[in-house]
Design a protein around this nucleic acid. Sequence first.
DNA 1: GCAAATTATTTTAAGCTTATAATAAAATCT
DNA 2: AGATTTTATTATAAGCTTAAAATAATTTGC
Lengths: 169, 169
Amino acid sequence: MNNIMIPLDAETNAVEMPDDHRDELRLWLRLLTCSTLIEGEIRRRLRDRFGVTLPRFDLMAQLDKAPDGMTLSDLSKRMMVSNGNLTGLVDRLVASGHIDRRVSETDRRAQMISLTPAGQSEFRTIATEHEGWIAELFGGLSQKDQADLMRLLAKTKRSARQAVHGDVE
Amino acid sequence: MNNIMIPLDAETNAVEMPDDHRDELRLWLRLLTCSTLIEGEIRRRLRDRFGVTLPRFDLMAQLDKAPDGMTLSDLSKRMMVSNGNLTGLVDRLVASGHIDRRVSETDRRAQMISLTPAGQSEFRTIATEHEGWIAELFGGLSQKDQADLMRLLAKTKRSARQAVHGDVE
DNA sequence: GCAAATTATTTTAAGCTTATAATAAAATCT
DNA sequence: AGATTTTATTATAAGCTTAAAATAATTTGC
């Protein structure tokens, strides 16, 4: 049901197509376009309306879900960024009073990072508006579209993780 | 058929939900996870196997599709990055001999950028392997999944563009 | 208990990215 | 034609991002 011969044009027809993965490539480029487009708009609005960068907002979002705090390594895994990246990001957020860092009581290598009350309050204000922006950006999709897309992206995530880690969880 | 009352928990139930956009947020986070995951793996493989960065590869991919060359502004629009970003990227690719820059014959402000023969040859080697990686990463999706995802992402792209630019093309 | 391996974080160097302002050429509008 | 606006690019400053190497604390395996 697959592998249908599709004549391309006079030049390429004879030589090409050992096996053709152009469709997957187009799918990837479209996925990337969507996320670049949305991410760029969110970045712009965060800066214009709240003077905050997307990485700072993302970090605070992680902490808001973890009232007891998290270590840098936890943050690094969750946010899928390098450890070294977080060092600087955390430094700046401590300097601006949004987060606290204290040495872990059980592991003197590790630090527990958590939102300050001011940081949490500011984050929640921003998060509410942020949620509205996202709904607006996805506004052209019906409920069914959204559910279908969610399911297909779950499948994509599993597929990519499998290829990256050999992991199936 | 929508707007079903979902009791959350004792604390939030009474006060919350002016209108709830958590599903869109989860959809966005999943989309972002997929693209971050795939992009990170591609970046890693490009570096490990070919010693090339993703932005340099992306720029060369644009030029490969435009044999007559492109201006910096064209590249900027296509790649969805800032103009200033391209200045440095182009400088480095000229220095490494992958691309050529020459002043446009019709507009002395503009420069035409194009792949050198060596740049094109190297790009095509990399591109072939790259296409295989993408196919591998999306390998868990059936043909139908891929077609469905493609269609839903097209819709997402239109929806986001609409929200960003008010544009419907 | 002690050496070896692992884990948590920081440092460094290079490159990427953006926004903003500056410069310069071209197009537009009287 | 001359002034104004737009367009193309570069420069600058700040921040983000990574990989790789260094440091330090903990855990593991005798």
